[in-house]
Amino acid sequence: MADRFALEVDDLHVRYGHLHAVCGLSLRLKRGESLALLGANGSGKSSTLSALCGLVQPDSGSIQIDGISLTQNPGLCRSRLGVVPQDFAFYEEMSGRDNLMFVGRLYGLHGTRLRRKVREVLDFVRLADVAHRPAGTLSGGMQRRLNLACSVLHDPVLLLLDEPTVGLDMNSRDAIYQLLESLRDRGCAFILTTHQLHEAEGFCDKVAVLRKGVLIAQGTLAELARQNPQPVKKPLHPELEESRVDSVHHFAHELRGPQGTNLESVLSRILAESNAREVTP
């Protein structure tokens, strides 16, 4: 059971008309593993997550969650998936408890079992005291925790998190990551998109880097560092050097993090290499 893949993606392609948003993506994630999906805006992260949720029909490729095909059995597949959107995905007018009760019913929980699960999750995210308040009146950190609670109520096998800590202060961010670590210890696998490199480095076992829909690197930080040991080399086309360097800096700027993190330097090398490949005739 422990070796069973929580997620298996093979040769995934997603197109929006002429735009090839995801191009041949393959991923594997075991239970309890966490993956940071990195990339600049428009790199295909959101499209990948949308395809994994079943919100976008892939043009080709296969997705299996906990060994179940998303295309063949979407209902069962979705029941093992938790999604934490970047926006607050709950009804602000309803109380935290009512939101959880509603979400629980969508996942087939009812009666005593639902009430017990809601109680457990409220305790887990430390919102039991404010569960009666309209969700919109909670603080930003509490709303983030409620967003997370709505996604884990049904004990998902795989959790997709789209920038779960955006706009939070350090303490609230730490609280979220403590909760996520606790879930990971229970065997839940994660895919996390973030622009905070130190969060990805500190929390995730693996990193996958997307660029223009293509997976340009995947592995643990140590593996990536081994695969990309050299600093940026002088490009083959000097006239393009300026734009290429700008592109790397732009991406590094978007992926904000403390200067000098290991991941940042590795990413810079990966992207520079990718740029160099792209401009090579």
Binding site: C53, L55, G75, V83, A89, F90, V103, Y107
Partner: peptide, 14 residues
């Protein structure tokens, strides 16, 4: 717009 739709559509509800 608010992301609730994403939660609803990712739930096992046709």
């Amino acid at each position: 717009k608010r992301g609730v739709w994403r939660r609803l559509r990712s739930a096992p509800v046709p």
